[in-house]
Design a protein around this nucleic acid. Structure first.
Lengths: 267, 267
DNA sequence: ACCGAAGGTCCACTCACCGGAACGTCGCCG
DNA sequence: CGGCGACGTTCCGGTGAGTGGACCTTCGGT
């Protein structure tokens, strides 16, 4: 059995300021602590591990787990627990995600075929980009990003698009929150970043060069629901050597227009 | 404002036997009733509508909604509610769905390119198939199936695969539960269905001809995690006139083997 | 001005929830 | 073998989180 350290990193968690302070004297708070004990890496947890991670009393975890089990939000795996299918099912009903995905997916497939590189569609959530959809070409083994994964706004091409078209206060908040470099190429000077964002707004195009991961770069364009309102950003990521900004930008622009049109027609 | 009838259909709901009987005297039960008030069609609900649909007292719905709002499980849209992004995010962490999706998606893209028809990956859940992933070619406007959507086991190609390789008791349960035809071509005689399933097991191939929707048919093949254990089923759906069983079967078999290999390698 | 229906708030009662403690079981080690 | 620690599970009495009826305000229609 894998030994798990007592404290969770809890550094990147954008969930809430009071992580376990007063969330505990409400049933929903406890349920939340239990459910959020699962991560993409540790997806099967024993009761004892749940107790440790959530900080909820053992008897309570046990009782709540039974109830979540009956609901289908949790499942048993041996005598350990994992998140259940019902959660996936409900998660797919989320309107923001569903409409964007339905509109974007066909165009993303076109992009994938045309470029043979990884395609992302990301939206704004807190201080991160949240990947709503991602398509990879065969054997592109990248554990870097995953669907519903998060990355900072400041070091991704999609994030720069979102920052560029969002209110200036978001940029300030990002700076105030601190820019932690992911690679030695990550842009950490707020002034430099701001200058880039001005250019992004003008060109309707953002680029990120090995700022998230060495050896890889991305290009992103905005996707609008209405002429003024940004829905999200569409990007292509490729090894720096294979990147062809000009060609990819054209393909991205075409796809972005198609998605915008689809979104507006079904609104 | 749309008028909503007081009682929900509640016919197809595989959620639970006691729909609102004693689920109400537990916080989680109430939260469940509230969350499951949202459907793919009615995805934005007012407080009053939530009260009507869930059957929970107004003050309680209000209080719980605030808490779910803070969590991000619900979002506000004006002064109405909808399911929130956090739910999508958590839903994508569900292991069963995530590993299958990651393994299957690239091969499904190949299938889409090769056939230019709708591709489904479905798994078994209760008496239904649950679509884990779905790819459609451009402008294939089909509201019939959607990701995380459900259809009965007995009238889908994927469902027949699952029935064929599951324990016989599942077939009995399906029959006992009653076979309601979706079209006039849906097979309703248990004997006939059982004979088909025997053939499916032998051929490792299932076909459905306009049994779900007139004008459309599907072909499905099994996907195994281990030589004995079924992971799910992979299918292609097309208008009857365009269907080419022979060619599509070959493509499906290839993809199925690829997915199986990927699944086994990362297990 | 009146009405009905909506969202939101209040508050005293009470029962669902809590969690410490105890129990049965497993695997490990001396 | 027998003791030990860690685990999953169950029990039960006290209590405060949760409850929901009543109430207030706002808004749109007549």
């Amino acid at each position: 059995m894998t030994v798990v350290p007592f404290v969770r990193p809890a550094a990147e968690s954008p969930i809430s300021p009071q992580n376990d302070a007063d969330a505990m004297n409400s049933v929903l708070g406890k349920a939340r602590l239990i459910i959020e004990s699962f991560t993409a890496e540790d997806d099967v947890l024993s009761l004892a591990e749940l107790v440790r991670r959530s900080g909820v009393a053992k008897a309570s975890v046990h009782r709540l787990a039974q109830e979540l089990l009956e609901w289908g939000v949790l499942e048993r795996a041996g005598n350990r627990y994992r998140l259940g299918l019902r959660l996936f099912e409900i998660g797919q009903r989320v309107p923001r995600q569903r409409t964007l995905r339905e509109a974007a997916l066909p165009y993303m497939e076109d992009l994938l075929i045309a470029t043979q590189e990884t395609v992302h569609f990301a939206i704004h959530d807190g201080l991160d980009v949240l990947y709503v959809e991602k398509l990879v070409v065969h054997r592109g083994l990248n554990k870097q990003s995953r669907i519903a994964g998060r990355l900072p706004l400041y070091c991704t091409a999609t994030g720069k698009v979102i920052l560029a078209f969002a209110s200036p206060s978001l940029f300030q908040e990002v700076v105030r929150n601190g820019i932690r470099p992911l690679t030695r190429k990550t842009i950490v000077q707020p002034g430099l970043l701001r200058a880039q964002l001005d250019k992004v707004r003008e060109d309707r195009l953002a680029v990120e060069v090995e700022e998230t991961r060495l050896g890889y770069m991305s290009v992103a364009v905005p996707v609008f629901t209405a002429p003024t309102t940004l829905a999200g950003a569409l990007s292509i990521t490729a090894p720096t050597c294979r990147m062809n900004v000009g060609r990819f930008t054209g393909a991205l622009r075409t796809a972005s227009l198609g998605i915008s049109r689809t979104l507006q027609s079904l609104a």
